[in-house]
Amino acid sequence: MEYYHLRTFVAVAEEEHLTRAAERLNASLPAVSAHIRGLEDELGVALFSRTPKGMRLTAEGRALLGEAKAALTSVEAVRLRAGALRQEVTGVVRIGLNNEAARMRVPELLTSMTRRHPGVELHLVNSSSPRILDNVRQDKLDIGFVYDNIIEPGHGVEAVALEAVPMAVVGPTTWAERVCRADWDELAGLPWVWFSERCPFQYLLEASFTCRGLPLNKVMVGDNDATLRTLVAAGVGLTLLRRDDALDAAAAGEVCVWRQDGLTLGLSLVYRRERAADRLIEAVASVVAEVWGLPDRCR
């Protein structure tokens, strides 16, 4: 029995799908299928039942899953312990950025990392919070910046809170008088440019209006901040932006800003919980905490 057999077993069990498990492992579909067949042959039991909807653990598979996870954890502990014995932290860390590098304080991060850990190479990937979270969970990214209202208890990640990001409702400039004097009920009745699935902006607005019992009039969907801003400027409807982006757009004469404060999104640094003792993760997380001025206990 090889390490990769157990790793594939756990990935298929968690994803419940061979293709998703192959993507998570960066392996081919035939290789994943072969690993499962080989492990089943060696153990002499069927681990999964194949269904039209995917892979389902058998009773034997469920009984062995905990042992497989424990074995992988033990192997990972040996690897981490070996890394801890090395004098210098070296390696590549893939970091997901959910906003511009300057806003994520990347220049300061790079300067500090070069000074403290010159053997660590940082690879920066711009993406969205949901995609970053998924990629961290699947080991396609090592660590990432996300808006934390999309993190659920079962996601298996550690989240280090960095700051509360102010948000603002914006509308077309031709609606300025109406928007500026509007209350929540009046805002709900206006047309809204909405967001793609699992967007943190969507979750924040839905929570804000749902708690007041107000349905929203969604007329169009945009998939990024630039598109949302353009559609609002074109007079399509209201949307939500970071307050700094909203004020920039207002200064450019593109939008008007609803002046009520209090809407915020938490920005956090996330990494897989089981990698908390990984020296590469520790090195980057400690420097991020320093750059963001977090208390010593967060470093």
Rank of each mutant, 00 (worst) to 15 (best):
Asp139Trp: 05
His123Glu: 15
Ala168Pro: 00
Ala34Gly: 01
Asn149Trp: 03
Ala102Ile: 15
Leu240Gln: 10
Ser268Pro: 12
Arg198Lys: 13
Asp245Tyr: 06
Pro166Tyr: 09
Asp134Lys: 08
Val157Gln: 02
Ala101Met: 13
Met220Tyr: 15
Lys140Ala: 03
Glu14Ile: 03
Asn217Phe: 14
Gly119Ala: 13
Gly44Phe: 01
Arg178Cys: 02
Ala251Arg: 10
Pro295Phe: 11
Asn126Met: 08
Val287Tyr: 03
Val170Cys: 01
Pro130Leu: 02
Asp185Gln: 13
His17Asp: 15
Val270Gly: 06
Leu110Asn: 04
Glu100Phe: 15
Glu14Asn: 01
Gly66Asn: 14
Asn224Pro: 01
Thr73Gln: 07
Trp194Gln: 02
Met55Tyr: 14
Ala233Leu: 04
Val157Glu: 02
Arg79Phe: 06
Leu216Thr: 14
Leu97His: 12
Ala182Arg: 09
Leu265Tyr: 06
Val170Gly: 03
Gly44Asp: 03
Asp261Trp: 05
Tyr203Trp: 10
Thr230Cys: 03
Leu241Thr: 07
Ile36Ser: 00
Cys211Tyr: 07
Glu67Arg: 15
Ala188Pro: 02
Ala251Trp: 12
Thr230Ile: 04
Val45Asp: 03
Leu29Val: 14
Val92Thr: 13
Arg62Pro: 01
Glu100Leu: 15
Gly44Cys: 05
Arg242Ser: 13
Asp223Glu: 11
Cys298Ile: 11
Glu23Val: 03
Asp296Val: 12
Leu263Met: 12
Ala68Thr: 08
Arg79Lys: 08
Ala46Ser: 08
Thr264Ala: 07
His35Ser: 00
Glu152Met: 12
Gln202Asp: 05
Phe145Tyr: 14
Gln260Leu: 01
Gly171Ile: 07
Glu40Asn: 00
Ala164Cys: 01
